[in-house]
Amino acid sequence: MINNKNIIKGHLSMKMIRAVEDEIAFRYYKDQLMRCPVHLSIGQEAAAVGVCENLKSSDYILSNHRCHAHYLAKGGDLNSMICEIHGKANGCVGGRGGSMHLQDDSVNFLGSFPIVGSAIPLAIGVAMNIKRLKKNSIVVSFLGDGAVEEGSFHESLNFASVFKLPILFVVENNYYSIQTHIKDRQVSDNFTRFSNSNLIPSTRCDGNNFIDTFTNAKKIIKEVRKSKPYLLQLDTYRFVEHCGPNSDDHLKYRDGKELNHWLKKCPVSHIERLMLKNNIINQEYLIKLNSQIQRKVISAFNLAIRSPLPKSRDASKYSYAK
């Protein structure tokens, strides 16, 4: 189900995302140039990459506030994203959106919609269009454990099931809605109970394990291509605070044992250890890769820093389409 080529490609994508977000975190308060809220996916890379590595460029995805990993995993342009987070005119939406409103039509990343649960019905509409026009695509709706509590999620499951839509719901369960643990919000952390009740097949797996996620996603996406909705629950953990670049574990809302459990399960080092152990890659490869990635990341930040801000006279542009 997974070959070395898939693993090397997935690893590269995860490394890239990690490096980008580490750089955002490092510069965020120091530079004071990314003046918008950022929700980092550090720790959750395997979920985004494990799914997106199974998608074609003609497939669509929609995302939420924690969208950097989804955007990059789908092949979204790095420079446009970093410029957008810097509020620059050459950002992917011209500085109108910021970190939470990424979009890259060239790879069918239709956008991130930061109000929790808001993007799911949009994805349903995309799936209805695909089905009616018999397009050779599917749509993936990325959502989190918080969105599972929204009415739009339940309405959308019913829709997907009734209309037999080519949609994959990927629920990344990082256990926290900001600082509130799932046990205080739901009676169970198993979301397949909702797909079951809507007669939608589902799978739950370790979202920090790239190989598990990839192979499950591969199998599932094959089914979704036959216009059958599916739900994939990926258990994972964010390593930094809900919003912002730092750890907030001094606040003690996360149990120390739980935290250590997940920190040991870092998706990037997990796959890397495995690759080294099986001689898929060697240290030399990693050193070379790290410096290649670093060069790309630094060049994106340099571009963003020297790019111009949008003009204030253009603030009203695009309020109405002609």
Binding site: S118, I124, M128
Partner: peptide, 16 residues
């Protein structure tokens, strides 16, 4: 499901 089908309308209109 007014919320869902309103969103679905917007979603499918994004695609034309």
């Amino acid at each position: 499901s007014e919320n869902c089908f309103t969103g679905a309308a917007i979603g499918s209109s994004i695609l034309g």
